[in-house]
Amino acid sequence: MLRVAATLKSGWVTSSLLISKLQGYPRQHHLTALLQEYGKLVKTTFILRYLQSKPLRRRIHAQLNKGEQLHALRAWLWFGGDGHLRRKQEDAQQETAGCLNVLTNLVVVWNTAYTQEVLKKHQEDGHTVDENDFGHLSPARFAHINRLGRYTFQKVDQFEENGLRPLRS
Rank of each mutant, 00 (worst) to 15 (best):
19 I>P: 06
166 P>I: 14
137 L>E: 02
166 P>A: 10
58 R>N: 13
152 T>D: 05
77 L>V: 07
103 L>R: 10
69 Q>I: 10
141 R>L: 14
108 V>P: 06
37 E>Y: 08
72 A>E: 15
117 E>Y: 00
147 R>A: 04
80 G>S: 07
83 G>D: 06
85 L>W: 11
128 T>Y: 13
63 Q>D: 03
65 N>A: 12
94 Q>G: 02
137 L>H: 06
133 D>W: 05
23 Q>F: 14
156 V>G: 04
112 T>A: 00
1 M>N: 08
99 C>N: 01
85 L>F: 13
102 V>M: 15
134 F>E: 07
101 N>E: 12
37 E>T: 11
158 Q>K: 10
100 L>P: 06
47 I>T: 09
37 E>M: 06
60 I>L: 09
47 I>A: 13
29 H>D: 11
154 Q>E: 08
168 R>I: 07
162 N>A: 08
123 Q>P: 00
28 Q>R: 10
138 S>E: 07
88 K>V: 14
149 G>D: 05
68 E>D: 13
15 S>Y: 15
78 W>L: 01
51 L>Y: 14
74 R>H: 12
68 E>Y: 10
59 R>K: 04
158 Q>V: 08
64 L>W: 04
149 G>F: 02
104 T>F: 08
133 D>I: 05
82 D>I: 14
148 L>D: 09
121 K>L: 02
62 A>E: 07
102 V>L: 15
97 A>W: 01
68 E>P: 04
143 A>S: 15
83 G>W: 01
131 E>M: 12
157 D>I: 09
62 A>L: 09
157 D>C: 13
86 R>T: 01
36 Q>M: 03
93 Q>D: 08
71 H>I: 02
13 V>R: 05
93 Q>M: 06
92 A>I: 11
122 H>A: 08
158 Q>H: 14
121 K>S: 02
